[in-house]
Design a binder for these strands. Sequence first.
DNA 1: CGCCAGATTGAGGACGCTCAATTCTGGTGG
DNA 2: CCACCAGAATTGAGCGTCCTCAATCTGGCG
Lengths: 244, 244
Amino acid sequence: MNTLGPALEKWIHRLRRRSVLSAEDVQVLRGLSGRVEKFSANQDVVSLGECVAHSCLVADGAVARFGQTGEGLRQLMAVYIPGDMADLHSAVLPRVSAPIQSLTHATVIRVPHEELIEAGERSPDLARAFWRDCVADAQIASEWLLNNGRRNAQARLAHLFCELSYRYAALGENPLRFPLDMTQNHLADATGMTAVHVNRTLRALREMELVDIRGRTLRITDLDRLGAVADFDPRYLHLTQEQR
Amino acid sequence: MNTLGPALEKWIHRLRRRSVLSAEDVQVLRGLSGRVEKFSANQDVVSLGECVAHSCLVADGAVARFGQTGEGLRQLMAVYIPGDMADLHSAVLPRVSAPIQSLTHATVIRVPHEELIEAGERSPDLARAFWRDCVADAQIASEWLLNNGRRNAQARLAHLFCELSYRYAALGENPLRFPLDMTQNHLADATGMTAVHVNRTLRALREMELVDIRGRTLRITDLDRLGAVADFDPRYLHLTQEQR
DNA sequence: CGCCAGATTGAGGACGCTCAATTCTGGTGG
DNA sequence: CCACCAGAATTGAGCGTCCTCAATCTGGCG
């Protein structure tokens, strides 16, 4: 364990679910440094247009990547929970094309690109693991595109909840009861809906006894049926190792 | 020039727009091999669930990546035109989570992953260029997500046309008159609409004197106004070099 | 206790969908 | 060279999901 604490371990754990890493590679990862920063809700972690020199590892809370139209409509492009390296991709494309903001109180560790790139140059396996991680995230974005474009309101929300459930499960946490650090406005921006319609749809899901939101925690009453409503197939998350 | 011909040169050209590559790196790329394959419309180039050992370089025509819901609704996740390496990402994630199909007659060159990976291991710059290319593609998918989730029918189609215009321009071709190898059904699947509504929206765009589709070619009458309707900002395409 | 962001509810309207029929087009074989 | 055909484009009518606007309610915090 190093100064970056459990968040880094979670990230390493996730990388190892997706790639085979040698003990040395893991040691290199454990040697990464970082600066801890805390945010309250709805603050820019990384701003649009900025040219960043660090990637953000989420240690606590939740952050998200936002897109925005000219009229100011927002679209959430990804949600990051503890153990996620929110913008690993910025290591190779440092100009920020979509800002990252905190959804609630969040703490983030900024890891220097320099160290990530150097680690990748020393170990091709590590370089490939980083590349693969970005590709896996891209496939999540693609699934969101499908979700957004071709499913109805209930399925969209259900799908998002299923995704989070599996991601929390992969962290070893309870997949049926986990923090949902998003307001209904955030949910609306994630699913391309309005907050009003999110509210009504949420009520429908509650009345179907599928999910229940109490404060900041989401309870999944029936994951199987929720998955059926969502048309959910967890394979796109690439949470299990699939080697070439 | 090698056996892979102008398609490979186009791809190298695109990589060099996004990354600085040494002359040696370029020579390595030119040394890649590949097997040419031809397809008629709507055939699987790469099938769902398959574990592929090659990436597909588009030489002619157009192909696209498809998502599909349980009910069979389809969502186009990306369109690839000549010079695009459609699934470079499969080099690190070979299991196909979204099939690639031809949109019209298309010819594709299958490049062995082996050679790509080896090239990346020899040259960290090349490895980073591949990684960056995948990241840039991911940002295009994110922009599609925003487009799909937060813009109306006219803007969605206009945005797609603008994107293609800039991508053709980057290949040195006419940005105001280029092949649109997509049926209205494809356009519908790309934008999360129905074919009927695509048709009506297309008529509206034509009546606004913005675009005109004749057979398989798209003519852009007024790119500036089209861009305004689309709320288009080409930066997400990463077609100009932006170094760290 | 007052304040404020977020959640909830109502009513009406619009954008895009469904279903179905018709026309157009390009490629095919006779 | 023409007739034919299948796929694509086009149009109409009616409907439904989701949006807009606006008001009210709730819970946490200073």
